[in-house]
Amino acid sequence: MKKIQMGFALVLSGFLGLVHAVTLPGPVVSADWLAANQSEVQILEVRGDVISYTRAPEFDVDKKTGKKFLVEVGGHIPDSTLLDFKKVRADRIIDGKKIKYLIPEKADFEKIIQAVGINSDKPIVLVPVGLDISDIDEALRAYWQFKVYGEDNLAVLDGGMAGWLSEGRDFSLAASTKSSGTWVGKGERKELIASSEQVSAASKSGKSTLIDARQPAQYFGLNKRDYVGAYGHIAGAKELAPELLAKPAKGALYFWDKNTYNALFLANGMNPKMPAISYCNSGHLAAGGWFVMSELVGNKATKLYDGSLYLWTLEGRPLVGVPLN
Rank of each mutant, 00 (worst) to 15 (best):
G26R: 08
I234H: 00
I112F: 06
M274W: 04
K186H: 14
D306V: 11
W164N: 13
L12T: 13
T65L: 10
P78A: 11
P25C: 10
Y231K: 07
S134E: 15
K250V: 06
K106Y: 11
G96S: 11
S208E: 12
Q42A: 10
D84H: 02
L154F: 12
K178M: 07
D60T: 15
L210T: 06
P248N: 10
V73I: 10
L131V: 12
M274H: 08
K190M: 13
A246R: 10
L210E: 01
R225K: 13
D60W: 05
F171C: 05
Y227C: 09
K258T: 14
K97F: 03
Y279L: 13
E315Y: 01
G160Y: 04
K258E: 15
I51V: 10
L210C: 09
I234C: 04
L154W: 05
L304K: 05
A56I: 08
G26E: 08
N299K: 03
D84Y: 03
S176Q: 00
R89L: 14
D152L: 08
N271M: 09
R55L: 12
S203A: 13
L102G: 00
L324G: 08
V29P: 02
A286L: 08
D121M: 10
L264A: 09
V199F: 03
W290Y: 10
S52Y: 02
I43C: 04
I118K: 03
K224T: 15
D170A: 15
K67D: 15
A301D: 14
I277G: 02
P272C: 08
E188R: 14
P78I: 11
K147C: 10
G14P: 09
W144Q: 04
S200K: 13
Q42G: 05
I234G: 03
I4S: 10
Y310I: 01
A287V: 03
R92D: 04
Y310Q: 04
L44K: 00
A175L: 04
F85L: 13
Y279W: 07
S278C: 08
D135W: 05
D212N: 08
I124C: 04
A155N: 05
F146N: 04
G7R: 11
L222A: 11
Y310C: 02
I133Y: 04
G66W: 12
A235K: 15
K300E: 14
S176Y: 01
S195D: 04
G168F: 12
E243N: 14
N299R: 03
Q5D: 10
S176W: 02
V297Y: 06
F59K: 03
E197Y: 02
M270G: 02
K204F: 01
K178P: 00
D158E: 09
A217N: 13
W256K: 11
G321S: 08
P104I: 05
L173S: 02
R47G: 00
K97Q: 14
Q42L: 10
T65E: 12
E40N: 09
E138R: 10
S176E: 03
N299W: 02
P128M: 06
L324M: 13
M270L: 12
L18M: 15
K111C: 02
G283N: 05
